[in-house]
């Protein structure tokens, strides 16, 4: 296990401090100008301590990568508009299947190629797929071919339209991978 670098500690501490502000209710008080300074200072000390211990587990790549404004904006857009829309469509589809009298399901496990290289990007995509009703990521593998390394997801799909890898990938990932590629390469 590599040691925690200084930027990794700071980056982790910022995230922890934001959570501290939300949970203790100081964020709302900051806007009203009546935050208690003791709570703010204690939170800063505790999040620095947590950053020292947890930084090396939390940050594996460049530390301030996500704090870049363009990437932060794309990420927020993905979380607030793009992904909920996909979620709503998939929810409606699965709810219709569950309530229809014939129960039109067609389950199977398909293999899907993934173009993201970064491990954060891959875990974001895998979690997005699992959170979408109708698809669950079951295994992540890496295969070495002549052209380099290619990652694959094994996905349990409730309505297998096609078993062909590329087409199944387009149908399952939809627009999600295109948006995640703008954040992580």
């Amino acid at each position: 296990m590599k040691k925690a670098t200084f930027p990794a500690v700071i980056s982790t501490a910022i995230v922890c401090y934001l959570f501290w502000l939300c949970i203790t209710g100081q964020l709302a008080m900051l806007f009203e100008g009546e935050a208690a300074w003791q709570v703010l200072v204690a939170g800063a000390l505790v999040s620095l301590g947590v950053g020292l211990f947890a930084g090396k587990y939390f940050i594996h790549e460049r530390s301030f990568y996500l704090w870049h404004p363009a990437r932060l904006f794309t990420g927020l857009l993905y979380c607030i508009i793009i992904f909920p829309w996909e979620l709503l469509k998939a929810n409606w589809d699965v709810a219709k299947r569950a309530l229809s009298p014939k129960l039109p399901i067609n389950p199977g496990i398909v293999k899907v190629p993934v173009d993201l290289q970064s491990e954060y990007g891959q875990s974001a995509l895998a979690n997005s797929i699992t959170l979408t009703p109708g698809t669950i990521t079951m295994e992540v593998t890496e295969e070495t071919t002549d052209e380099g390394e290619q990652d694959y997801f094994y996905i349990h799909w409730i309505d297998v339209a096609t078993a062909e890898e590329k087409e199944a990938g387009d149908a399952i990932k939809g627009t999600m991978e295109k948006w995640l590629r703008r954040i992580w390469k």
Partner: peptide, 18 residues
Amino acid sequence: RMPDTFCRMQSATNISTC
């Protein structure tokens, strides 16, 4: 109503998201 474990989990995701 779903026939097996994995399909049941798919339906459970429905509750836990929307």
